[in-house]
Write a protein that binds this DNA or RNA. Sequence first.
RNA 1: UGCCUGAUAGUAUAAUGGUAGUACGACUGUUUUUGGUGCAGUUUGUCUUGGUUCGAAUCCAGGUCGGGCAACCA
Length: 553
Amino acid sequence: MSEEKSLNFIEEIVEADLAAGKYQSILTRFPPEPNGYLHIGHAKSICLNFGLANKYGGKTNLRFDDTNPSTEETEYVESIKEDVKWLGFQWADELYASNYFEQLYQFAVQLIEKGLAYVDDSNSETIAQEKGTPTQAGIENSYRSRSIAENLQLFSEMRSGNYKDGEKVLRAKIDMASSNMHMRDPIIYRIKHAHHHRTGDAWCIYPMYDFAHGQSDSIENITHSICTLEFIPHRPLYDWCIEQLGIFPSKQYEFARLNMTYTVMSKRKLLQLVNEKHVEGWDDPRMSTISAMRRRGYPAGSIREFCDKIGVAKRENLIDVGLLEFCVREKLNKTALRRMVVFDPLKVVITNYPDTVEVLESENNPEDPNGGTRTMPFSREIYIERDDFMEVAPKKYFRLAPGQMVRLKSAYIIKCDEVIKDADGNITELHCSYIPESKSGSDTSGINVKGTLHWVSVAQALQAEIRLYDRLFKVEDVANAEGDFKDHINPDSLQVLPIAYAEPALLSDQPNSTYQFIRKGYFVLDRDSTNEKLVFNRTVTLKDGWAKEAKKA
RNA sequence: UGCCUGAUAGUAUAAUGGUAGUACGACUGUUUUUGGUGCAGUUUGUCUUGGUUCGAAUCCAGGUCGGGCAACCA
């Protein structure tokens, strides 16, 4: 396989800029607003920004876009830093738009001095109305012609706290008739008597996104400022501010944000899920947040791999969540420790097995020759999975059935001799006989069986809680589905098994191990675990060929 | 009614005027002490109409369809 991977359109721009000598090296930035937790969509942006810097020998800043004190909190800052680090990236500088408040203020003063900004006393309704519509030009109001001196005075008074919220705004004086709504004298400063998580009460006016973002990029000498498609119409304003101020010309480029099937990706909706308790928190394993995926057991590397696979383009997209799951399985298959856990037990008595405990050995991971082995007890009484037995077996059913033989993984071949039922006809246990010569690793029985089952010895079994997570929504395209997105929540997205039976090795494993419970899926120990109670989250299922086959019949 | 964007298998993404390729999915077969994994194979595509050209997914013109734009949010 040739490693000649084609470039995405942003990489092409970067290579062209570098080749033209436009920059010696590149500087990108990841600029989250600390008003929520990062989600998989942010991961795409993180991988893009940091990936570009890594690939071309540049650097990436982490910059918090904290210009709206009423929605931002330190809790979010901390979680964002943790998530970026966990994803495997290291930023050059940790910065905040709020670091630049004084500088930004001076930029605004410069604009006023150039006659390019004015204080408007109108209320928001009036401003909106005078802005016109996309098909109809806006109108210029009387405040627009205020003198520079008056604007300077008023803006200074705004800063001093002479006015209440909403009483005045500072607007850039551009073009009320522009076909681009963002150029119709956009508001660049508003009054907000709010406590800021970093600057406290030092300010009562705050710059708007459009006046903060580009200038922050410029102050940091960001060469490539990469954002999502909805900012395309902001670009002329981004460029206008930089040009009028005569500062470092950072350039904005836009790519299509990630959308994923069965998933919501907006912070607003995620917040709602948390606040209205549809999930247990930002890191509930069903959420699309980075922290949820971490808790669910997704390896950071598989998220990076996913971001690499989905590519970067300008076309709107809806990525199959199955691709993310594929990346997770691909990684985990090579690394996860194999263990046996029975979810829904059916007791099997091996009638011809002596009343002793035998210690068996089994590989930790058949994909990894250096993975080592662990031991497990085998005895006369074991549990198997209830649905690994059928009294009347259909065609192509390879599991246990009366008179049928199966192999117990890493142990012996057994044959089902008798089905024991209670008075109501429910199956309570199976009586089987084992083939002593069929022991794993030294099988001389010559018997070939199609089915291999996982099992756990009854007497030594650990009890554990298992949490089975499924997709949070029932519809593919949640954002575009009829009605409220909450109408589409999957009521069965979490199934808790209070007691499952697990092999004893799980007690001595490292707590941060990832597991494949053989034939059941990938699992990870949840942080809710205690010494008394193990709790496992299902990371992702295994591909189930039999389920498909059974469905066909 | 305006402006800005975009359109390639089911989903993504490449081909930068010269054989439409890759991944996931689906389907076959094969291997397997996980109905997992691996391996081999099959399947399905350039929105449309014109034009330029020896040659067009690519360039040009018109159309169609999708997305965005009128927060004192980012």
